[in-house]
Nucleic acid binder design. Structure first.
Lengths: 97, 97
DNA sequence: TTATAATATTCCATTTTTGGAATATTGTCA
DNA sequence: TGACAATATTCCAAAAATGGAATATTATAA
């Protein structure tokens, strides 16, 4: 396996290594959302959300679709759900958080 | 879902967000290895490997077992393999790396 | 054209990560 | 005990991430 493949994977995990971005991913698991919906539902400033979305998109984890003034984001990687479910199970049974 | 659960998950992804640590995880997928084997097989300085292992251990991704002078590390999270396989498939079919 | 709503970008100070180099710790054996 | 092998720790400067605040861009509608 090539070194740049590790770099690429590291980029994906780096995009996921932030609580705000994880919360966004979780929210998008419900289906496509526009930025305004994300801003309304999660409690962060709009520029913060916007920057987070861009980082997730650069990593290839989400994709966007423009429609008029709105930009809709949705998940792009299918296997994320399984991994997150597994992590959740492990974390729920963790002795101390 | 609680905020500290996102923090905890972010910690896990942060531990995975580095090419050297991903290479170590890959090497450990083969089974338990001592630090010396890891140092011999991957081309990094021993202190670098040691620090990487500790970060992975703190995140709860690997565990260690001491035996004499040696310390053996092994993977602790089962579902990682599936997710990595899925990521590999996606990355292999990516237009440009 | 102008105002406005939705989203993105820039700037910036603070914190965190990174990886190299030197050194410390620990266990074993003679 | 003393030497040595395996591993961990500390120190440090450079690089990157973080998140707040202000501002810019873009599309639409009046």
């Amino acid at each position: 396996m090539k070194s740049n493949l590790y770099e690429r994977k590291a980029q994906i995990f780096k995009a996921l290594s932030n609580p705000v971005r994880l919360e966004i991913i979780d929210f998008l698991a419900d289906g496509e959302k526009c930025v305004c919906e994300i801003v309304e539902n999660l409690n962060y400033e709009q520029p913060h959300i916007s920057k987070s979305l861009i980082k997730l998109k650069e990593a290839g984890l989400i994709k966007d679709r423009k429609e008029g003034l709105n930009v809709y984001y949705s998940l792009k990687i299918c296997c994320m759900g399984d991994f997150f479910n597994c992590l959740n199970k492990i974390l729920e049974s963790e002795p101390k958080l």
